[in-house]
């Protein structure tokens, strides 16, 4: 999975923009795939590697901003570089806030585009790495028994062993054993690491009892 080639996708309804972008990106060594409409792009399976989407804001049917929103909602990994014939500032701000890499006004310089594409691919690769890490941690967490998972959530809530024992109505020694197994299974050395890991995958600390 780590060795997937980066891909650049172009969605623009204007043929000369599409082909010229393909030429420019190919001149910098990228693999490029073009689409005329947002709907065309939606039908494509997600590229399982770093990906950048060069997206025209105005498209027939579903426009670029709407497509971006949908991709974000679905947690897609490709990063977006918007291009537009006439971008006004509010539109650009809106696009950037919703997580776009850049917002370029046509005609743009080759440096600006290639730099933005490079940045997008880097972020996409980063996201893939995070994604991979999360998947790894999740699989480790999945290895915990329900009891161990409970202990895990109480530990990251900052409770002492005694308190955990009280919460769970278990012997102190038992809690210590569970805790040791959690640290081992999740491959962490300290409570601080454990907290960071929990944050990475979004495991919330257990609420201490009433």
């Amino acid at each position: 999975m780590k060795m997937q080639v980066p891909m650049v996708f172009v969605v623009d309804d204007d043929r000369s923009v599409r082909t010229s972008l393909t030429n420019l990106l190919e001149s910098d060594g990228y693999t490029v795939e073009c689409f005329v409409t947002a709907a065309d792009y939606q039908t494509r399976r997600m590229h399982p590697g770093p990906a950048c989407l060069v997206l025209d804001v105005r498209l027939p049917g579903l426009d670029g901003l709407a497509l971006h929103r949908q991709l974000v909602e679905r947690g897609r990994m490709e990063q977006i570089v918007f291009i537009t014939g006439y971008g006004d500032i509010p539109m650009g701000v809106h696009a950037m806030k919703s997580g776009a890499i850049d917002f370029l006004t046509k005609p743009f310089s080759d440096e600006a585009l290639l730099e933005a594409v490079a940045r997008a691919l880097a972020r996409s690769a980063q996201n893939w790495r995070i994604h991979d890490e999360v998947m790894q941690i999740r699989s480790r967490i999945a290895a915990l028994t329900p009891r161990e998972y409970e202990v895990f959530r109480l530990v990251i809530a900052g409770l002492l062993n005694k308190q955990i024992a009280f919460e769970l109505g278990a012997a102190l020694r038992t809690v210590k054993t569970h805790r040791g197994r959690v640290m081992h299974k999740l491959e962490v050395e300290s409570v601080a690491e454990l907290v960071r890991l929990a944050q990475t995958v979004g495991v919330t600390p257990a609420r201490s009892g009433p």
Binding site: V17, L21, L24, G85, P107
Partner: peptide, 17 residues
């Protein structure tokens, strides 16, 4: 202006490529 920008974008991209 947008309509005019399309071919200009094409020219610029192709020349740079």
């Amino acid at each position: 202006a947008h309509e005019l920008n399309q071919p200009l974008t094409g020219i610029m991209n192709n020349a740079n490529a």
